[in-house]
Computed example of a mutant assay.
Amino acid sequence: MLRHAREERLIDWTVDDARLAPTADFVARVIRERYPTLDVPFHARWRHFVFSGRDLWREIESTHSWPDTAARARAAFDLAITSVLLDAGAGPGWRYRDALTGIEAARSEGLALASLRWFAAGGMSEAADDALRADAHSLKKLDASALHAAFQVDATNPLAGAEGRAQLLNRLGAAAESRPDLFATADVPRPGGLFDALVARAVNRSLPASMILDVLLDALGPIWRNRPALEGVSLGDCWPHPQGGFVPLHKLSQWLAYSLIEPLQAAGIAVHDIDGLTGLAEYRNGGLFLDMGALVPRDADAMTATHQVSDPFVVGWRSLTVALLDELAPLVRSRLGVSDEAFPLAKLLEGGTWAAGRVIARERRADGGPPLRIVSDGTVF
């Protein structure tokens, strides 16, 4: 797709390579401002549970009585999986107000905080004596009204795709019950059962990051709706493009894979080859390249039109985002004076392109929203 764009053969997009260097300068500056010592964590859901230096999940888990490290890891998996699946774009008007801390948050941080409080209150648990779990049976029963209450949704605080999010959790519960080989080898069916499935695949208590994605794509394939299928198999976030065939993007699944690395490490499982995963095809990374002028739509009117996720225009934008992240990474590393090993893509995203995409969005648009209008069912972005 990138080659087509550079050869002026892609139907919707062109690439201005001269803008990659300024983009790298901008990203490197944002990283140094946010992390002066360059001690950047991975781009993971855990970052969104931290507010003004307070790690709210760490506060919760540190006061809980865990029978062993595996139980703690399963709970972390439960939280990460449900919270990431609930994270698709909230829309510009939604906010969450936390009664315990007084924090008010929007977008990804607000969704993270709302999902954390819902989880910690036992909203996904079937066990009266153990709130910190997400049981398949409970997930199957959740409805939109429960999600509305947990996320403070009403006529004055609308959440984009709220019903779709609830239905996604329902399908997650059904998938967990249907695959005990992945979700229930050490407990009743629950998303956290994937921890045990991954431990079983580790060699000498070590596994590549790509193995996490492999297991997630196998386990979560049935939960997606309105996705392309090939020979009866749902492909998830993988879309056809008239010039690129099927383009596997898997934004939520890959972000979830990044987010599961830390619970595995905390449980004594080493994760290597982090760059076996790709950059994330979402509107902060994609918006960075668009707002910085590295990606240019052929039709200027496309910037004000409303698009479907499946439109070739959107598939092309997301595809080019993934390709350009790979090209941007070495440019940023050279400016920071760090190696590939010390600064994998997961750190570049966090430090990083996602944050820089948000900064440039605020400079370009009053609401800080994405540069394109895309119809979301709450399960892609």
Rank of each mutant, 00 (worst) to 15 (best):
G279C: 03
V332Q: 00
R362L: 06
L277R: 09
P263M: 07
K251E: 07
L249V: 11
D275Y: 02
S253I: 12
D301E: 15
D326S: 11
L336P: 04
S319N: 14
P263V: 08
A294Y: 10
D311L: 04
D273A: 15
A361V: 03
I269C: 15
L336A: 06
G352R: 03
G351L: 01
V309I: 14
L295I: 06
P312C: 04
A266P: 01
L290W: 04
F246S: 01
G293A: 08
E363N: 05
E350R: 09
S339T: 15
E262I: 15
I274G: 00
L349G: 08
E262N: 11
H307T: 06
E341A: 14
L256C: 15
I360R: 05
P312G: 03
A300H: 13
L264P: 13
M303L: 15
A329P: 05
P330R: 05
L277Q: 11
E350P: 09
L290I: 12
P330G: 09
H250C: 02
S253T: 11
F313Y: 13
T306K: 08
W317I: 02
G287F: 04
L288F: 04
D275M: 07
A266T: 10
H241G: 06
G293M: 10
P371K: 05
D301K: 14
Y283S: 05
L320E: 13
S319L: 11
